[in-house]
Simulated assay, not measured.
Amino acid sequence: MRIVIFCHPSFPGSQSMPRYAHWLASGMQARGHEVESWQPKPFFYTLPVPEALKKWLGYIDQYILFPIQVRQRIKGLPKQTLFVFADQALGPWVPLVADRPHVIHCHDFLAQRSALGEIPENQTGWTGKLYQAYIRRGYRKGRNFISVSNKTQGDLHQFLKASPAFSAVIYNGVNLNYTPGQAAESRSVLSARFGIDLSSGYLVHVGGNQWYKNRKGVLEMYDAWRKAYSQSIPLLMIGEEPTPELSELAQTSAFQKDIHFLTGVDDQHVVHAYRGAQVFLFPSLAEGFGWPIAEAMACGCRVMTTSEAPMTEVAGTAATLLRRRPLDELDSQLWADEGAVRIQQILNETAEKRREWIDGGLTNIKRFTIENATDQLEDAYQKILGTYHFASQTHTLV
């Protein structure tokens, strides 16, 4: 196959989607397919202007200059070229190739739902609403879609005006580096790396500052657990630098000395963090897939997550579940207390029971292998191409 992958630009600083696009490209290249990756290059974005204007100049690069370049480049490509959009947020570019073979990868519709007022925890301003509507108009021109979870597919179908020609769910694959190991060894490695005594274990959360990651809820839950029980196990918060709100919440905690925000942690040390943890806390408010759940299980870590899709879809029956953190502050304290009870129940498990949970997780994550995901994607791409015919200079759907 000849494949062109549309990717997010690198200049706004996004990491997860460029990594996903790179994985798509390398996976298809390894199967012998000819792959190109197209993304906007910074031009107006490089101009010396106040930081507040950078985003808007970036939009000019993405939605004015880049489409002009794409229209020129596609003229020289064979009709059989498959255009792959690495994310549905690239919707504004879909009309450029809507009459040619294409597929749109869908990760989550949280920004779309927020813009419509469906998520009270994430209010969207009027410019954000216009931007999300612009994205929606774009991907609605598409005909073929691949979603990372049934939850994401369900949201997609609600947003589309008509049934798509092709729609499949293909789960993400977990990196092969995520494997079980010795907890004591990993704790020793992390203790040396970060200068923290972790020899007796710790709780861990992995995630960014996005509203749906619920880092605030993790801190609330940890605080409630420390107040209710006499154990002094530290908490590792791996991800971005904390927001001012999170920093203040941690600093006002009576247990602040045991709360550690770790940034710039490489993948191998994240693996060690999973392996050495007594519990991985992942009480997300929402996700598109919930990758860290599968990563933690692959490392033999005990997992606690939210009792809503897609977290339940990824975790299966191999995780302890907690209801979604409520918006009401009084009820949220009850939620934190419930979480504290769940944490203590996990810590009190017998070695045999803990082993059962971990083995269940290792069995569960066999659904999420890189090889399986790549096989399914290759098959889906070929099926999509098979719905087009190229007998003439113009092509139409069969």
Rank of each mutant, 00 (worst) to 15 (best):
T312M: 06
A30H: 13
I60T: 08
Q123A: 03
F255E: 07
S307R: 11
N150M: 08
K75S: 12
L176V: 03
F255S: 08
G208P: 07
V49Q: 05
D258W: 09
F83K: 00
V204L: 10
S186A: 15
R193E: 08
P92Q: 06
A228D: 11
W126R: 03
L235D: 09
A294Y: 06
I104N: 07
G276F: 06
E241G: 00
G361L: 05
T369A: 04
V35G: 10
P180E: 03
S199M: 10
V94F: 12
E245C: 01
V169A: 11
Y222N: 12
G91K: 03
V84M: 04
R100I: 00
W126Y: 03
P292E: 06
E338L: 12
K41S: 11
Q182C: 12
A318Y: 03
T374L: 15
V279I: 15
W23N: 10
K383I: 03
G117M: 07
R367I: 00
R193D: 03
V270E: 00
E295T: 07
I259R: 02
A391S: 12
D99H: 12
W357S: 01
T306I: 07
T243N: 06
Q376P: 02
D61F: 14
L377Y: 08
D87H: 05
K54V: 07
S147P: 01
L47I: 00
I5K: 05
Y171H: 14
V218Q: 03
Q210Y: 12
R73T: 01
Q112K: 06
H8Y: 14
A133R: 14
H395L: 11
A277I: 01
Y59F: 11
P310W: 11
T320R: 13
V270R: 01
N122D: 09
N209L: 11
A115Y: 06
F166L: 10
E313H: 04
D331K: 14
R143E: 03
A250L: 09
S114R: 09
L96Q: 05
S200R: 14
A309I: 00
P50T: 02
T243W: 11
P42F: 10
G91M: 08
Y202A: 04
R187S: 02
L321A: 01
S307Q: 08
H205S: 12
R355A: 09
E308K: 12
V303N: 07
D359Y: 08
P101C: 09
I104L: 11
A286H: 13
P283F: 12
L82T: 03
I233T: 13
A21S: 15
A296H: 07
K213N: 13
S188T: 09
D359K: 11
R113E: 14
Y139V: 02
A168Q: 15
T312Y: 02
M17N: 09
C7Q: 11
N150Y: 13
L96W: 05
A224K: 09
K227R: 14
R226I: 00
P92F: 10
G181N: 04
H157Y: 10
T312F: 04
G117I: 03
G195E: 11
